[in-house]
Computed example of a mutant assay.
Amino acid sequence: MAQISVHEPDVALSDPTLVEGLPGVGLVGKITADHLVETFEMTHYATCHCEGLPDIAIYHENDPDITGAVRLYADSDRDLLVLQSDVPVSPNAAEEFAGCLTGWIREHDALPLYLSGRPTDPDDDRATYGVATGEAGDILAAHDIAPPDERGAISGPTGALLYEASRQDVDALGVIVEASGRFPDPAAAKTLIETAIEPITGLTVETDTLLEQAEEIRATRQQLARRMQQAQEESSKAEPVGMYQ
């Protein structure tokens, strides 16, 4: 049965922002979500049991307990939720997963912030762009997050989540950042946090360690990155679409 199982019902949230961290291009969402959870020492709040997600047990360093693969973490003081995933979501499961999560988001009056990388050969300046559903476009304008400069598509589960938000008339934000299409990209995650997550949430997030630990982050995420390259159709990414494609 598709559901979100809440483990910590006493955690109080009021119109929270939900930052999505599914694996995709440059693993920008994954790196961002992991960094937020670790930096704020967030509470394991809920587990996603949506149709199509793999039934696997995840174990963690210095912890005997196991968890599901796709989890929600919460910080009541910051009114923040983070979706953390240790596996790519199969394209065959994207529609069911999007419907499952979007229904829960709607019930809990959360504002989802979906993250996607646009594959490029990045330099020090990583451009970011914003898209929105419902009335959330006003939030992008208020924080000077520009719309994309060309026509394109967001694929994978992140694209499915944005499309489902549009279908259900849920306000949602999508932020696209230029990122490496070959390697985990902590610099792109840093850009996402500084240009979008901080201004939208009003939070201050320490990001220097993302660059200081860049090699360590790349090494620990490399196996997942290889899996993403072997199955590109599972990857959430934003890419240009020609006028007649």
Rank of each mutant, 00 (worst) to 15 (best):
G156E: 06
G159V: 04
T195D: 15
G202W: 01
K237M: 14
T43V: 13
E95V: 10
S5A: 13
A214S: 15
Q245A: 15
R218Y: 07
P119D: 02
L162Y: 00
S14I: 08
G117M: 00
S155A: 14
P184R: 01
E234Y: 10
Q84N: 08
A132H: 11
E206Q: 12
S14C: 08
R151N: 14
R226P: 00
A225M: 15
R221V: 00
D144N: 14
C50V: 07
P186Q: 05
S76I: 06
T220A: 12
R227F: 05
H7F: 14
Q245W: 12
H35I: 02
M42T: 00
D10G: 07
G156H: 08
A179S: 12
L83M: 15
L173E: 02
A2V: 01
P122W: 05
G134L: 00
Y114E: 04
A160W: 06
P119Q: 05
A94R: 01
Q230F: 10
G21T: 03
V131F: 02
D125L: 12
R167I: 12
T67S: 15
Y45H: 13
E216T: 14
I193Y: 08
V19P: 01
P186R: 06
T120K: 03
Q168S: 10
D10W: 10
V205D: 08
D208E: 14
L81Q: 03
E96K: 12
A225E: 12
P119R: 01
Q168N: 08
Q230D: 15
A196H: 01
L27K: 09
C100V: 06
F40P: 04
T102A: 11
T39K: 08
D208L: 10
V70E: 07
E164K: 12
Q222D: 15
Q229G: 10
E206R: 10
V6F: 05
L203T: 05
V70C: 10
Y129W: 15
E135N: 14
Q213W: 02
E51Y: 11
Q232W: 10
L72M: 07
V175S: 02
A93P: 04
A188C: 07
E107P: 08
A110V: 06
G26Y: 05
V131Q: 01
H49G: 09
R151A: 14
A98K: 09
P112F: 05
L27M: 11
N92H: 09
V241P: 07
F183D: 13
L111V: 04
K30E: 13
V205M: 04
D171P: 09
P16I: 11
S14N: 14
R118I: 08
E150S: 13
T201V: 08
P148R: 02
E164M: 12
V6N: 06
I56P: 05
I105F: 11
A172E: 06
G159K: 00
H49E: 11
D15Q: 15
A231S: 10
L211D: 12
L27W: 09
P64T: 05
Y45Q: 01
P119S: 06
L211Y: 00
D65H: 13
A98F: 06
M243C: 08
P186D: 06
L36C: 07
P112G: 02
S5L: 15
E178W: 00
R221K: 12
S116A: 15
